[in-house]
């Protein structure tokens, strides 16, 4: 029987923290999406207006913002696939912790590949 002292299936462990991170990244991505559709909509205002705003995405500060964005999207994507496996695969619930660490490994590989590429684009090289 699960007790607070021994923890439950999710509380305080991989299950809970992946759920928290899924919500936080989801909300963050949603608000970025609202801004991103609005900035892209500037192509209907004028080429100059669009170029001026998109230019702010090319600064070193925003380069780190894009790294954070890709990090959030990659986590949300792979953890979302984990949720689907937990829901639909017979052995999914039993392996949810292993699946979480699988998500972390794939996420890390994506970030190790993307960060140098992004820094190269921003700072040249």
């Amino acid at each position: 029987m699960a007790k607070a002292s021994t923890g439950t299936l999710y509380r305080g462990n991989e299950g809970m923290w992946s759920w928290v991170a899924h919500r936080v990244t989801g909300v963050g991505i949603f608000f970025f999406l609202l801004v991103h559709v609005l900035d892209t909509a500037l192509v209907r205002v004028s080429p100059e207006a669009y170029n001026a705003v998109i230019g702010t995405y090319k600064t070193p500060v925003m380069a780190f913002g894009e790294i954070a964005l890709v990090a959030a999207i990659a986590f949300h994507a792979f953890n979302g696939l984990r949720v689907i496996l937990v829901d639909f695969s017979k052995s999914g619930p039993k392996n949810q912790k292993k699946l979480f660490w699988g998500v972390m490994v794939v996420w890390l590989i994506i970030m190790i590949a993307f960060i140098p590429r992004q820094l190269m684009h921003t700072f040249g090289g």
Binding site: P47, Q118, T122
Partner: peptide, 11 residues
């Protein structure tokens, strides 16, 4: 060039 290449012409 990644994000550096995005402008009106790219879209």
């Amino acid at each position: 060039d990644g994000v550096q290449a995005i402008d009106f012409g790219f879209v």
